[in-house]
Design a protein around this nucleic acid. Structure first.
Lengths: 190, 190, 190, 190
DNA sequence: GATGAATGAGTGTTCATTCAT
DNA sequence: CATGAATGAACACTCATTCAT
């Protein structure tokens, strides 16, 4: 597994996401992914140990990209609510503009492949957010609850709203982000 | 002439849920489901047109069961917040006690099979909840937002919290339901 | 295998011929034949030992019907050529009006099922024709060749002409029978 | 990268013909053909899109081979009857020496697969014969009838005579070809 | 007599992966 | 590095037939 041609690696990632979104995990065979990426099935095994490892690495790449997008312009000197709102706007923008990536991650999380990922390692990308929450709790601005509760109420709803598979007869629009943010903030603020 | 056997139908449903939870949608083959249910693969086709129809009908059955559980003891004469809390406790209890079912539904929703379901038809099971929300909005108790926002903030977080796949290093406990309810109510109340 | 209801037997025969012509031997399953005939698959086994025996008995029935049609109005007192022409007109009429039956027989003959039939027994239906040919040879009206040559040149062409599968871009019409008869007679006459 | 192997392609063709002759179209499964050819069932799909395409391409290959054999040494300067006789001898020889191929073609023609073939395209292989017939008609040597009549009376009887499935208790011998040719010529000549 | 449920064995086809080039 | 050929194992599904009713 030597890596020389980054274009092929990238093409494989994009093909994987596109295909899984179009036809689902079950039907996304190595042959189809290869065809979509414009390479031979055998080439996949140059870049990845096997199919599983390809799917996992695509997931991790998306998670990393997502964390970067959310944490960009993170300015710890602003008031906590403003920092929080910036995170939100970033999260919203990423999910809106990269719905395919987000949907791949969602399908992946809800599949047994999820067990193959070192989640503690992944969570490190989001450490600044954890720290911020901890900070907010200590400052008595945010409710003193397990961090999973904060995530569940603050972030999960927006991703849910953005997913057409789950949210039928409704499409999330730009102006809705303010509404969503208010609800999320009401949920977690003390 | 032999007659169709409800036990077999039931065994098939349970086997499907169990297997999909254990090895995922992608790997749950007809042969494996049949083996898990203790019948011949061919027998599945006596009860279902094809694999697709089996998976869909399991999903619908779970959704129906879920709606019944949530709406039991629905008493429209109580104050709105109390009705709401009862729904919550029911939802919490169902998800806690039938985590397998819920996780199956979640995987299903996040798969392309989801497109095969008539979601409008399914939503009818939850009509009383929709009416209750409408009522709350008119009484200025609940925020005047699209119903999908209410669902996203009021119900989905609890299911997320209950799902170990998504909520790592944390297990939802009975005492957490009060916390969760407070956060959900804060999110949606005016 | 008791036979009580002749209607069902008849329905099975017609369904078999119809289906084999429509989708071929390979795809004509017992279940489909049963459905086409409006009976249960199991019912077929009341009337026939197995699928093979059903197909064979349909073939034999057609052959018998065909021989009756060809030999009707057989008048051995006419001049030989006139007897022969009557046989021809009958054969032509049968093939034209029962193309489905004829095509079934043709497919059957060209399949290994053919080996299951006692052909000597079948040929007995056509004994008068054999005798006629023998007669013609002795009278020095017909060429002195093996009877298979006579059949091949006298009868096979007309069935070939009637079969759209074999005769593309051409449809046998009523007026063609005179032409065909002349050619056949030229082939066999001394 | 391995390269496609003509021997395998050839083995597949031979196995297909052999098997279809032995057990018939209906029973000739992909697995059995593969076994007969000494390859994996999956390998068939490297060389052919599907079973259908395999069967069709075998048919076309046989037809092409047959046309080449019949038209070899075609000398348009000889008298028409002599050209015709040469065609006959060639046809007779091909059918005699390649009875398996011929029988495959016959079974194929009498099956619904036949509809998948572009018969006009196929007929091009036999254009010289069509021209010869046209010529004969214009020279008032051959009866002025549709070309299908000529084929039906001139060529099909010999193939029928060569087919043991259709011609019971009789085997076509070398010396019979003169007899057959005379009958065929009598049928079509003016 | 007639049936639909039930099934082991088989269908055509695709799978993830390896191999020779 | 990169490839298409090659495949055993698995896929969803249908088969001819039997069995309990």
């Amino acid at each position: 597994m030597r890596t020389k041609n980054d274009e092929k690696q990238e093409a494989l990632f994009k093909a994987t996401v596109k295909l899984v979104n179009k036809i689902g995990f079950a039907s996304s065979s190595v042959a189809k992914i290869a065809k979509e990426a414009g390479v031979s099935p055998a080439t996949i095994y140059v870049y990845h140990k096997n199919k599983e490892e390809l799917l996992v690495s695509v997931y991790i790449a998306i998670k990393r990209e997502m964390s970067k997008a959310i944490l960009q312009n993170f300015n710890s000197e602003l008031p906590l609510r403003d920092i929080w709102k910036n995170l939100w706007l970033n999260a919203f923008e990423y999910v809106s503009k990269n719905l395919e990536n987000y949907k791949y991650a969602e399908q992946f999380s809800n599949s047994p492949y999820s067990f193959l990922v070192d989640h503690e390692e992944l969570e490190k990308y989001f450490t600044p957010i954890h720290d911020l929450i901890q900070n907010g709790i200590e400052q008595k601005i945010i409710k003193n609850v397990d961090i999973n509760f904060i995530s569940a109420f603050a972030f999960y709803p927006i991703t849910r709203l953005a997913n057409p598979n789950l949210c039928h007869g409704f499409e999330l629009k730009k102006e809705d982000v303010e509404t969503a943010f208010t609800m999320a903030w009401d949920a977690i603020k003390l």
